[in-house]
Every structure is written in C-alpha cells, then in structure tokens.
C-alpha cells in the first residue's frame, strides 16, 4: 500500500506554476514525472492533483515558458515531454525571488522574537 501522508499541505494559489518550472530546471520531463517529482521532493507533503496539473502545463505552454516535444519514456512509450524555455527560465528567477521575499516576510511576521535577538 502507498503511504498516506499524515498531513498534506494544500497547494497555495499560483504556486503550482513555480513548482513545475523548478522541476523542469533539472531537465525535460513528462507530466506524470513532474507530479511524482514534486510529491517525492516535498516528502509527500504536496500532492499535485492531476485535474490541475495538465491545465497548468498547457497554460505555461501557452505563455511560452515551457515547450513540448514527443519523446520516448524510460519504458519506451511515446510521451509528451516538457522543457524549460529561456523565457521560462527568466520567469522562474522572477517567481522564485518573489516567493522568497514572501516567505521571508511570512517568517518575520510569524517569528517576531527572532528579530529582537538579532
């Protein structure tokens, strides 16, 4: 049986795009691999719903941040692979710094005591 995560984190609005872009930074991957990668790396805390994964992939494609190509999977089946475009790379940097600023801000607000000791 698959291990059910004890506590699963709801994906924040808009973070799926960032996760997909980051995952594709490692190299081209098909949709299923992207989902599994996010799930694994987040230690099963993040579960990507298929219902939102494919619309997201196609949306990013429409924006020109990722590009598709048909290739053979590890098991020799035809699959649609996505890779990061230069435009997507730029977008990733931007989104990432935005997210880092946001998360820093959240930490600062949630742990105000730290500030005193610094």
């Amino acid at each position: 049986m698959r291990r059910e995560a004890l506590s699963r984190v709801e994906l924040l609005q808009g973070t799926l795009d960032l996760l997909i872009l980051r995952t594709l930074l490692a190299g081209p991957a098909h949709g299923h691999a992207v989902a599994k990668h996010i799930q694994r790396t987040s230690e099963d805390l993040l579960q990507v719903e298929t219902g939102s994964l494919y619309p997201a992939l196609h949306r990013l494609e429409a924006k020109g941040w990722i590009a598709p190509s048909w290739d053979l999977s590890e098991k020799g089946k035809r699959a649609r692979f996505y890779r990061l475009t230069p435009l997507g790379r730029k977008q990733l940097t931007a989104e990432r710094s935005k997210w880092e600023a946001f998360s820093r801000a959240m930490t600062l607000v949630l742990n105000p005591a730290d500030q005193g000791t610094q």
Partner: peptide, 22 residues
Amino acid sequence: AELKEELQFHLEEEAKQRQEDG
C-alpha cells in the same frame, strides 16, 4: 488527439506505478 494521448499516458504510468506498489 495529443491531449487524449497525453492523458492516456498519464493513466498508464499511474496504473503501472500502483501495480508496482502491489
């Protein structure tokens, strides 16, 4: 057609993985 194939591939991958899980 591509979309259908893509989703089909996803289903097969997922099924395969679950089979591996037992």
